[in-house]
Design a protein around this nucleic acid. Structure first.
Lengths: 202, 202, 202, 202
DNA sequence: CATGAATGAGCGTTCATTCAT
DNA sequence: CATGAATGAACGCTCATTCAT
């Protein structure tokens, strides 16, 4: 006979919001911004479409939230690489493994759609124009330079090398990110990719 | 006002159709299936949207036509590689160069959308389920095997190697295929990519 | 935490109900039936929107209640005029003053919306079809007739005169009942309006 | 076998647009901005709702167009009064007659809704903030002043008098503007209203 | 062959109403 | 009695498709 207390409400809200976000990531990743209908997200989350609007005031806001979270998470992960133990090459390998984790696919597709689509919310465009690849380059440059000094990593402009490598990894993720049973592309083995940066001892 | 004869009409039809196809490729590549409006294609082709329906029965049919043409063209190009002169490594390099040609980006995006989207026409799904990567693998396997025999190309399962390499190249193309104004990914230099397959002389 | 007794509960109910009615009048008057959202009333009353439904079964019922109260009140006021002291013209003046009171604006707007809107509850339509202007006419006719006999009020069909005068006053109220910040209409001075009914001594 | 020529198209477009505007005025006047559904306008105009959007890009734009036309028309009519022949009092009477014309009711309701509703398009708010009553006052002031000089019109601040009179007339129109068969308000006879401004010879 | 007016299915979003707590 | 999470009908608007000219 008494309304739910603040704590319970907060818990319900957090759960629902998480539930929606998870559903939205899944659907947006697979179908893109335009291809995703709010009803699909609602269905995926197992709620009514009306309820979506209690938690996110629009499709735009929902997508923007997702991107913000994704960007933050990716930054966090990249930052982690620097704190790993081991040689520069070990770090690159760890970074590669972390990126190529299948768990990350939805994230990559999300960002790919956000970068690619013309129907992206204005706010997301801003995020990308401010928060470009440079952040990652800066985070990883030291590793490359150090690796080059040690003779573990091929010579050449470190920034070019990083961007190229990230491009390869991102491409791999995006290209493989669908569960089509159809025989298609494949995620290359890490050793194979590492050859791009790894210096071969003469 | 003499009525056009059969031949002239056919010519007009063919020209128009080509015009529409070119416009459609451009728009579909950039905006995906759902993101592309028939009116955009009409505008890009410089014709009325009504006219589109004289040449293509529906958006689905138009997209399907595009994919069929693209698949055929890609097969044609891949076949060409085998007829090139030079060492296996030279052929791989030529193949790489041919693929990374910016001219091909629209094609890669098109195929990416076709593979990725859930809103793809049934017929396109069939095309992909029949016409999978194996064709390319078969076309390029000989080159790899020969290269391995010559010690130019790294050891290992040739098919895995091919699929991985094509995945890398395709990923690169898809990931780079948008507005280059924004600082972002980059197409790696060919030498850098070739390291994936190239055997380093000991 | 002793449970409230019957009497206290009734009191709470009555207070709440009054609180809601006051809020509803305010919002409905300013925004009309369709323009008023239940959430606005709840916010204005400082309660949750869920609670509204403990006191009023629906938006329709709430609005209907408001109209019923307003009609009763207006009848009460009009009746009062007859009991005033003074000449017929004094009574008309008092009536005019009472009506043009700014306090009454919400009432007039409410009735205006109820009369005007097509989305009005069926029950309200009934109220208007039964309880029409005749009641007021009957209440005021004597005053007019008496005034005409005394030469204070212009000659002519008393009923026509009353309805016309009430129309003018009502129109004035409705037209002036919004944001006065904007330079716009104005409530005329009473003397000016009285000229409509007042006979000028020759 | 040939597309319609420019002239025919223009004619169709003009007819349709007129048809829509007429329907929209009717519905908006009767039901207000929020109460009017685009489907109602479409039904009233006898077209599909989709077609509305070929001619007006939104409900807002449609409403704004209506208001702009109404304001222009009202200004035109008011201006006309000054060019009439006759005494100042004749002019006022002509003005009164013109306003009280039943044809104008929809216009008055439209403006009333535009002035009253909180959901009015921003552009309409601007129109009202710029184009306030002063225009009309200025147009009619001379008539009043002249009439006062001639002893035809009561003494007093001419502007107050005009605004009051316009308020009365507008109120009358708004209050009477529904075809409810229910006995209700009535449009007063003109002589009765004219007494507000008319000076009685002593 | 070519045009654009016209239609209607479908999507994003709002809001009255219900109900578990 | 009181709260706010949850639902779904309904509305504004878009766009693929049709068809008269």
């Amino acid at each position: 006979m008494v309304p739910l207390n603040e704590e319970q409400l907060t818990q319900i809200r957090d759960e629902r919001k998480e539930q929606i976000v998870a559903a939205a990531v899944k659907v947006f990743a697979r179908r893109g911004i335009v291809g995703t209908k709010m009803s699909m997200i609602a269905a995926e989350a197992g709620i009514s479409h009306g309820l979506l609007y209690h938690y996110f005031k629009s499709k735009e806001e929902l997508f923007t939230t997702l991107i913000e979270e994704a960007m933050a998470e990716s930054l966090r992960e990249t930052t982690n690489v620097n704190h790993l133990a081991g040689s520069p090459l070990d770090k690159i390998r760890a970074f590669t493994e972390a990126i190529l984790d299948k768990e990350n696919m939805e994230y990559f597709l999300l960002v790919h759609h956000a970068r690619t689509s013309n129907d992206v919310p204005e706010k997301v465009k801003e995020i990308f124009s401010k928060n470009n690849m440079n952040v990652y380059v800066d985070l990883l440059k030291n590793i490359i330079v150090e690796g080059q000094a040690k003779g573990e990593i091929v010579a050449g402009d470190p920034e070019k090398l990083i961007v190229s490598y990230i491009s390869v990894l991102s491409g791999i993720m995006v290209i493989n990110a669908n569960d089509m049973e159809v025989e298609g592309y494949r995620i290359p083995e890490i050793d194979l990719l590492m050859r791009i940066v790894q210096k071969v001892p003469e």
